[in-house]
Design a protein around this nucleic acid. Structure first.
Length: 482
DNA sequence: TGGGGTTAT
DNA sequence: ATAACCC
């Protein structure tokens, strides 16, 4: 790929370009004739040929399961269906089904308030995420059958880039059939469809694919959910929430501004979180229009060019971020919160429990984590959030034994974690923790590669300079860090 | 607020 | 290692 050169039409560059193909959006136009394959063997031959992945107009679907944990619980126990159901973690109702919502229960309501509002509320404990996680990945895998480009957002949302699928279906249609394409589900704002507008046609085909996805999720997994179809992730996500349980909505370009201005505050904009909202408010920015019209220069001064440009584009409904395939998880963690943990022995016991669960998960995954991290939250009456962590490499001899249930991997791992613990917490002083979490990350595929003469020296376990055994016990803190 | 996740700095 | 974001 030639650096900087916009003129030369690149051939295979979908992935590379997708990071910055942004500006094509502003350029608008030309989405009429993206063709998929013909040009790919002839670099630079046809000036108007747009490589598949970098077509300026995409079709994105956002799939959002309805009250996911509650649905999983109702599938596990059919007795629960039809009753108001809440899923409890500690003293919170983290989510609930629609029967419960009708009776006034809200997400993240305290159990006390929820029971007060709704004495008939049935509660199930949802602190163990295993079944939710498993079901979540089944949904993602189902979506991947439609298109491999699926990005997870939490356990219950997926983005799918269906641009290619849409193009393929359009090519199957004769030109007279195009004008009989119909929408599946709602059209945002009840906007009228123009079948002479190719962008409308593409989004309608997208709505049909979205309907097929929801059907598949229901038929194969028994789950209902919403979907939104639009030209980028931001808009797809915003529009998926318009008709709420178990319905879908497509956004046509002419209604984009209406959609984003339907957000009554910038904090509703995905990508603008708690901190950014506070800082924007300090600048007098409260509405989406405030952010649209605010001085770019001052915004850049406040947030840096990267954040400033990104959030201001969001305010116009522009989002060039690609749907990034999530693939297998980057990390596994288990956490537990509690009112008080103030002794090392207590901490050690909790850490061992978290670790035991994690080892099972890591074993099932097959890959090997090369880093372990311990996270704590200290009690503080006022201070908002704030966790501290320490991490270190997992010694290679421990990594090797991770999959093999035979050897005791608990003992060396607990020892490592307690070193990390004492590195963070001065156990000779009083302390008060309210959360412990253990995380395995830096996951690598098993060493399935055959060893050539070079690999031999690059494989730590085979190198003679390491692994003296004595060294790992004397490891100083700085040696424990990555 | 829970029990998770991700990426950027 | 932390800070921001997401659910």
């Amino acid at each position: 790929v030639e650096p900087e050169e916009e003129g030369g039409r690149e051939e295979e560059v979908a992935v590379v370009r997708s990071m910055e193909s942004a500006d094509a959006e502003a350029a608008g136009g030309s989405e009429g004739a993206p063709s998929t394959e013909e040009g790919s063997g002839l670099p630079g031959f046809h000036h108007e040929v747009v490589p598949t992945g970098s077509a300026s107009s995409r079709v994105i679907v956002h799939v959002d399961l309805d009250c996911f944990y509650a649905q999983v619980e109702m599938i596990s126990n059919l007795e629960l269906k039809g009753k108001p159901l809440g899923v409890q973690q500690k003293y919170l109702v983290v989510t609930c089904n629609y029967e419960a919502r009708k009776l006034g229960v809200k997400k993240l309501m305290s159990v006390r308030d929820a029971k007060e509002k709704c004495p008939q509320l049935v509660l199930v404990n949802g602190e163990d995420l295993t079944r939710y996680r498993e079901m979540s990945y089944k949904v993602t895998e189902l979506m991947e059958e439609f298109s491999p480009v699926v990005e997870r957002l939490g356990f219950d949302e997926n983005f799918v880039d269906i641009t290619e699928m849409v193009e393929k279906r359009l090519q199957q249609l004769q030109s007279d059939e195009r004008s009989s394409v119909t929408v599946s589900g709602h059209v945002y704002n009840d906007q009228s469809i123009n079948l002479h507008d190719i962008s409308h046609i593409r989004l309608l085909v997208g709505s049909q694919i979205a309907a097929e996805m929801r059907e598949a999720i229901y038929n194969q997994l028994g789950l209902t959910g919403c979907a939104g179809v639009a030209s980028n992730k931001l808009l797809a996500k915003l529009v998926s929430g318009i008709f709420k349980p178990n319905q879908q909505t497509v956004l046509l370009p002419e209604s984009c501004q209406d959609l984003i201005h339907s957000l009554n505050h910038i904090k509703k904009m995905p990508g603008i979180g708690y901190k950014t909202t506070k800082r924007l408010e300090a600048l007098g920015i409260n509405s989406v229009r405030d952010l649209q019209t605010f001085s770019s220069k001052i915004l850049e001064k406040e947030f840096g060019i990267s954040v400033a440009q990104r959030i201001q584009k969001l305010s116009f409904g522009e989002d060039n971020s690609p749907v990034t395939p999530s693939g297998p998880p980057q990390s596994f963690s288990e956490e537990d919160s509690f009112k008080k943990c103030s002794s090392e022995a207590e901490a050690k016991k909790k850490i061992a429990e978290l670790l035991a669960s994690l080892l099972n998960r890591v074993c099932q995954d097959g890959r090997k984590p090369h880093t372990v991290r311990l996270i704590i939250r200290r009690y503080s009456s006022e201070k908002h959030y704030s966790r501290e962590s320490r991490q270190c490499p997992i010694p290679s001899h421990v990594i090797q034994k991770l999959g093999t249930g035979n050897y005791d991997v608990m003992t060396p791992m607990v020892d490592i974690l307690m070193k990390l613990f004492r590195n963070m917490v001065n156990v000779k002083m009083p302390f008060h923790l309210t959360l412990l979490s253990v995380c395995f990350c830096n996951l690598k595929a098993l060493n399935t590669a055959k060893k050539g003469p070079i690999d031999y020296y690059l494989t730590p376990s085979l190198s003679t300079t390491k692994c003296s055994g004595k060294r790992s016990l004397k490891m100083k803190d700085t040696h424990m860090e990555d």
